[in-house]
Design a binder for these strands. Structure first.
Length: 421
DNA sequence: TCTGGGGTCCTAGGACCC
DNA sequence: TCTGGGGTCCTAGGACCC
């Protein structure tokens, strides 16, 4: 049996912990650059605000309904996520942290008659210790646990928990469940399935498996099997190292000059290198990309990318910046208004498994020591306390964050003060 | 005026081998 | 006139997730 624990409207719930007066009022959280809606409270959903909608397009709805708007505050959400996951880890032996706000639990060791009680207890304790409301769905496969979780969220009478383990109930629920809400069925698959008259999860479950494999690949077949109660996906409790790391941002303003692009690309390369060292890997190549604003079809468009291969796999910030900038120089064209740039590193090996080169003239031992020192100093003093000059100090291109809440739980100066009179 | 960011997996097709 | 067969590896791009 699998349980899926999912935090309700997670980012909004994090903001509400420190603004309890917003508990019953509409709240949304925006993406980076204050661009799109990425989280909505139930009240905001009820007002018809869609996920991913550009904020400027619904400005009138926001103003009319007095909706509270927050810029994204990942320091806060990341910290709350850790708190929730730590509670689950302390209470359940086999857990897979699936995303920032979701975890799968192996609950096969629970006695079936206690499923409901155990799940209710988890909801209660997480709410009590963090202030975050969660929903739990339980079933025989991960895909069905996802369905159960959706059901748990839909009805407030369920108290946040729904167990789907009876054949008749499974059939009944899948019949009401739109096929596009099934885990792994996205936009394209929905269009295809709808074309063939398949609209519910039950119809998908009963499809001919050869047909599914042909049209929806092995992934689709696994979904069908999981809907039939045949587990294809296990709990993956070991955190695998990442296979690629990407840092990219849209600019707050349009950027034309090479210097600003250099600064931003260097900064993204620095972030990538930090994450890379954290997982003790070295990368084999770096890809840099830039593009103009494709929403502005009135302006000339340009987008391009370039991959540079390192002579020896590395996690040295300076070296990664060097090759990223080399790539940038190759693809940069003047007279375009750039909206976004990014850096992706890939082809990782463990840092102790790097194949050196006879013709390498970089002192790798020295570089390792420098990186170690920089990471240590920045961890103690704050990000970019030590930085490369090319990253710049001006950052005219940086993103908009006009409605950022304080980092209540991760910055000393932002701690709440309580006074008594 | 204004439109996010970071991942994984799968497949088709090209390049190459004998 | 007539142009094979079987395999591996790599990569770009698509689809999907949160």
């Amino acid at each position: 049996m699998f349980a899926l624990v999912d935090c309700n409207n997670f980012y909004v719930s994090c903001e509400r912990v420190f603004e309890p007066k917003l508990k019953y009022s509409p709240v949304v959280v925006l993406s980076n650059n204050d661009g799109c809606i990425i989280a909505r409270s139930n009240e905001a959903k009820a007002l018809g605000i869609k996920m991913g909608e550009p904020a400027f397009k619904i400005k009138h709805i926001i103003e009319k309904n007095n909706i509270t708007v927050f810029s994204t505050n990942f320091a806060l959400y990341g910290d709350f996520s850790n708190r929730v996951m730590n509670i689950l880890t302390s209470l359940v032996s086999n857990i897979e942290v699936y995303s920032i706000d979701e975890a799968f639990l192996d609950c096969s060791i629970w006695k079936e008659k206690y499923f409901h009680k155990q799940a209710m207890y988890l909801c209660k304790i997480i709410k009590k210790r963090t202030g975050i409301p969660v929903s739990i769905g339980i079933s025989t496969t991960k895909t069905l646990a996802k369905v159960a979780n959706h059901i748990a969220k839909q009805s407030s009478q369920l108290g946040g928990v729904y167990i789907l383990n009876d054949h008749i109930m499974i059939e009944k629920m899948l019949k009401q469940f739109p096929v596009e809400k099934v885990w792994g069925i996205g936009r394209k698959s929905r269009i295809l399935l709808n074309y063939y008259g398949i609209r519910t999860a039950l119809q998908l479950r009963n499809m001919d498996r050869k047909w599914v494999k042909k049209h929806l690949t092995i992934k689709g077949l696994q979904i069908v099997q999981e809907l039939n109660g045949e587990p294809c996906f296990a709990i993956e409790s070991i955190i695998n190292p990442k296979k690629e790391i990407c840092t990219s941002r849209s600019f707050g303003v349009m950027v034309t000059d090479l210097q600003s692009l250099k600064e931003s690309v260097s900064m993204y390369a620095t972030r990538c290198a930090e994450k890379l060292r954290k997982q003790k890997s070295c990368a084999g190549s770096v890809k840099v990309f830039i593009h103009s604003n494709y929403f502005r079809q009135d302006l000339p468009q340009y987008n391009n990318c370039c991959t540079m291969v390192f002579p020896v796999k590395t996690n040295d910030t300076a070296e990664i910046i060097h090759y990223a900038l080399k790539g940038l120089k190759k693809i940069y064209r003047p007279n375009y208004q750039y909206k976004k740039a990014g850096v992706i590193i890939s082809n990782f090996v463990h840092q102790n498994m790097v194949q050196y080169s006879l013709f390498d003239n970089i002192n790798r031992e020295k570089s390792k020591k420098i990186m170690y020192s920089i990471d240590k100093i920045n961890a103690a003093m704050g990000r970019d306390y030590i930085r490369y000059g090319i990253q710049g100090f001006n950052r005219s291109w940086k993103l908009h964050q006009e409605r950022l809440s304080p980092c209540y739980t991760s910055r000393w100066s932002d701690l709440l003060r309580v006074t008594t009179s």
